[in-house]
Design a protein around this nucleic acid. Structure first.
Length: 270
DNA sequence: CTCCTATCCTGCGAGC
DNA sequence: TGCTCGCAGGATAGGA
């Protein structure tokens, strides 16, 4: 489910629903491990923490509190939801009780996600090596070419490498490359600066459009209130193997790159 | 360094 | 209908 647009929508949902004066009265953890999960002791110590704000960094959700920062990653199947009462569902792993009686609940069937707390001044190790956010003015064709232009790896893999630039996942990588007419398997070193310029623009455009449409809900709902995104209805190539290209009518093809399914139009993309 | 593979885990759809 | 198989939006360790 979650790439950058989906995580951004979740962050906005959390902000909207938590408001300004949310206070944590309890954090209950399931017995099942996530990729990383806060210790029980830390959960206990969060009692009384005021929630000060919600930020996104790459695909991580950062919840600032008066007792440190809560870091959440949704992995493949994670979701946060707000409940007026503690309605438990299968695969609920974190249940945060709020002082107004509501519950903020993290659910994650595959448990690839993470949830931990970091004291002020501490940082989650996974955040340290991350490249810049994609929307900044410094992300230009020249910037991309400087980092990808000598690499032999497929451009799609490079776009998805969070050490270079964050936020582009498997769905949007295919969509971005369709938009600029470049085959996903093309090595970074064989792409011109002009093409990198178009890629830089397409990254921003596609992610922005996806955010504006509430993200892509492929399987699970993503929004905090249970609502679904709409961008899945605007995907041009992802999961459309065998279907006609919406631009030229040729059959969309699929292949595997970096172990991930990849989609492209053999006529529109060179 | 760079590139690629396997792995964590459950659920679901395709195919028989 | 019920079974098995393969695959799924991410991140990371480890090998070549």
């Amino acid at each position: 489910m979650p790439e950058l647009p989906e995580v951004e929508i979740v962050c906005r949902g959390l902000r909207d629903h938590l408001g300004d004066n949310a206070t944590i009265v309890s954090i209950e953890l399931s017995v099942h491990p996530l990729r990383q999960k806060m210790p029980k002791k830390a959960a206990k110590s969060m009692r009384g923490a005021r929630i000060l704000g919600v930020q996104r960094r790459a695909k991580y959700i950062l919840i600032q509190t008066s007792k440190g920062t809560l870091v959440s990653h949704l992995g493949m199947t994670g979701s946060w939801r707000i409940e007026a009462s503690p309605v438990a569902k299968n695969h609920d792993h974190v249940i945060i009780g709020l002082s107004d009686g509501r519950f903020l609940i993290y659910n994650d069937p595959r448990r690839f996600g993470m949830f931990d707390r970091f004291a002020d001044g501490m940082i989650y190790r996974g955040l340290e090596h991350l490249g810049p956010e994609p929307f900044g003015d410094e992300i230009t064709g020249v910037w991309l070419r400087d980092r990808m232009g000598r690499r032999q790896a497929p451009i799609k893999n490079l776009l998805m490498d969070a050490r270079l630039i964050v936020g582009v996942g498997n769905i949007y990588a295919s969509e971005i490359l369709f938009r600029v007419g470049i085959r996903p398997q093309k090595p970074g070193a064989r792409i011109s600066e002009a093409s990198y310029e178009r890629i830089a623009s397409a990254i921003k455009e596609v992610l922005r459009e996806a955010i504006d449409r509430g993200g892509s809900s492929i399987d699970d709902y993503i929004q905090v209130d249970g609502g679904r995104g709409e961008f899945q209805n605007f995907l041009q190539v992802y999961d459309r193997a065998g279907d006609p290209c919406l631009k030229c009518g040729a059959k969309i093809k699929s292949l595997t790159l970096g172990g991930r399914s990849t989609y492209f139009c053999p006529r529109c993309q060179k």
